[in-house]
Design a protein around this nucleic acid. Sequence first.
DNA 1: TTAGCACATGCCAGGGAAGT
DNA 2: ACTTCCCTGGCATGTGCTAA
Length: 337
Amino acid sequence: MDKPTRANRITIRTVAEDAGVSVAAVSKVLRNAYGVSDALRENVMRSIEKLGYRPSTAARGMRGRTFSVGVLLIDMENPFLPKLVGGFKRKMAAAGYNTLIGVGEARTHVESALIESMIDMRMDGLLLIAPRLAGKALDQFARQIPVTVVGHHEPDAVAFDTANVDDEKGGQLATAALVQKGYRDIAMIRPTTERRPGDVWHKREAGYRAALSGAGLSHTARILDLSERPDEMNLEINALLERRDRPEAIFCWSDIHGVPLINLARKRGMSVPGDLGLVSFDNTAPAAMPLVDLASIDQQAEHLGAIAAKQLLSRIEGRTQSHHQLVDPVFAERPSY
DNA sequence: TTAGCACATGCCAGGGAAGT
DNA sequence: ACTTCCCTGGCATGTGCTAA
């Protein structure tokens, strides 16, 4: 195959010449625009196929639209992500947009660089999933490109939109279920990452505390921190399970910790729920596996992704008022508590 | 009314010309 | 020699126009 040079590059003009029509006619076919006969459409499509023509994203960008959007993931570990991205992608594809994915590697500078390069590529919008960047930094980017954020609460943000599960309600739901089962000594596990105001576990903790308070158990509230690094995490979980003051039940902020916790407990010969009641968050695929069978709060990830797409599309269409939407969590009932 | 055409437009990179 | 300024090429799109 020839290297694409100026002389042999297939452009809209090449297609027009091949089909024997004007450049504008080809453009209309490409955009499904009004005023094209079936015969002309077929004629143009034949040439497009024959020549293997692809519209230039760069040139489209010049006119204001590239019909591509970027998704920024924090990392590739979280099993909650595929459904979310899937829901988003499907909705965007239906609207004629391509979705390209970048991974932030859980580092701020990598994340910023990715966002910048997505802006440079003249993408039409960005979906940021649980970004490490927050507040002013996000505002700065959102002034340059439409942005929707998922997995990060910032209800006062004006420049961008957010879509989240109601994490507080989720925390409340999980904790209330434990209370209802008769547990009184209920601890919450949260991650030992740096504390940022919009973090989801923050809201989940508020829900946990609200449920305890509603049951008159505020004084029993206990927060346990676990590392997110696998090697450290396992050591810390084992230490927790050996504690003499081990809680009767645990509300775990995420399956990231919930699944290893239930596994390690059973590996030690403990019965869950006999020796320890456990309700987790995210309802990811591992939690639903038969030998894990972990009760978990479902974020309705796919639905959340579709909502985020809808928000982004309307931003791209010019909406300037911000939307901050919360989705109701659903309790995925399983016998782990 | 409809189909199709011509042409201006958008923005950036690269190159030439002019200025320091 | 270097900087600044201006012009042009690159490509797809959308408006306004014409012919049937």
